[in-house]
């Protein structure tokens, strides 16, 4: 519990505290803030959606009921459509490209892009690249034809599934495991750590390593709350957050690789694509870019592609 006189910072997120990349990072932040800023600031983590889920947490933040959150990037398209960039398929070659873009001037601009709506982006946290799984082998994009894929609420992801001939399905997250297992839906897309953590691999024929998209998070706060902090306190807090971000983002890749290995050792099937097969997926999904380039801005797309080319 916090001492009197300390600035209480509530951090609500939706994962566990010790296995998910976001949960681990949040726990580390909590530990460091409470150690190093003892007496000034007190950070309380509310994991597992116990306080708010990702859809509600930004509303609560604007109300001033919670100070920190780290929803996935697609949740921010309600604030500015630029964030649709991160949902576009095959926009980034790998997690290094994502990292480089987020650290570039274009990426850092996006942190400030929601100030007039009351949100201040503080840091990007990685989860990893998305893979695709279904109840049959997915090698060519045509294999996805007619399959029902569970997707998150996002117009981009819906368009992406339609591009490969799949039928996008919306359902409550708590129903997904059962729905995959009983065959109500056929497939889904997620990062290795999520596929392992939610045991989706158990109820799928296999996972295909497509690396077709990313799931990352944005640590955000309320603009007015951040401004209300004394400058030294704010500086110290942001420094700790920066250090946690850097150290955990380096580990995110390893966390996902470990999850991938764990899936294999638990008896899950992982399928690789060769260069030609992968190019088929790229070609099939690419038209989605045209639909949303206006929302995202061609300059941002070009910047991301320049980074891909340089790696």
């Amino acid at each position: 519990a916090c001492d009197t006189g300390e600035i209480v910072v509530k951090f609500a997120h939706v994962t566990n505290t010790d296995k998910h990349p976001k949960g681990i990072a949040a726990s580390l932040l909590e530990q460091r803030v409470n150690d190093e800023m003892n007496g000034t600031m007190c950070l309380e983590v509310y994991p597992n959606s116990t306080l708010y889920n990702d859809n509600k947490v930004l509303e609560a933040m604007l109300q001033g009921d919670v100070q920190l959150a780290a929803p996935s990037l697609s949740k921010f398209e309600k604030f500015t459509k630029q964030f649709r960039l991160f949902d576009l398929p095959f926009m980034f070659k790998n997690i290094e490209a994502v990292d480089a873009f987020q650290g570039s001037a274009d990426g850092q601009d996006m942190l400030d892009s929601m100030q007039r709506r009351g949100l201040q982006g503080l840091a990007f946290w990685h989860n990893g690249m998305k893979q695709m799984s279904a109840n049959k082998p997915l090698i060519a994009p045509t294999d996805a034809n007619g399959l029902k894929f569970r997707v998150q609420s996002s117009d981009v992801l819906v368009a992406q599934m339609e591009a490969i001939g799949g039928s996008p399905q919306k359902m409550a997250f708590s129903e997904v495991y059962g729905a995959l297992q009983q065959g109500v839906v056929d497939g889904q897309e997620n990062t290795w750590s999520n596929i392992y953590g939610k045991k989706f691999f158990e109820v799928q024929d296999g996972v295909t390593e497509t690396n077709h998209g990313i799931i990352d998070y944005l640590v955000v706060t309320n603009v007015d709350w951040l401004e209300s902090l004394d400058a030294p306190v704010r500086e110290q807090f942001l420094t700790i957050l920066g250090e946690v971000t850097e150290s955990r983002n380096k580990e995110a890749f390893a966390v996902n690789e470990a999850a991938k290995a764990a899936i294999v050792s638990a008896g899950g099937t992982i399928r690789q694509l060769d260069a030609t097969q992968r190019q088929q997926w790229v070609d099939t999904m690419m038209p989605v870019w045209d639909t949303f380039s206006g929302d995202v801005g061609q300059d941002k797309i070009d910047a991301a592609q320049a980074i891909n080319a340089g790696l």
Binding site: G146, K148, S153, V158, S167, P168, Q169, K170, A172, V184
Partner: peptide, 14 residues
């Protein structure tokens, strides 16, 4: 929609 037409009314749940 899902069973007969392999489709989905995406806004139905909400």
């Amino acid at each position: 929609a899902r069973f007969a037409f392999n489709s989905n009314i995406l806004w139905a749940l909400e």
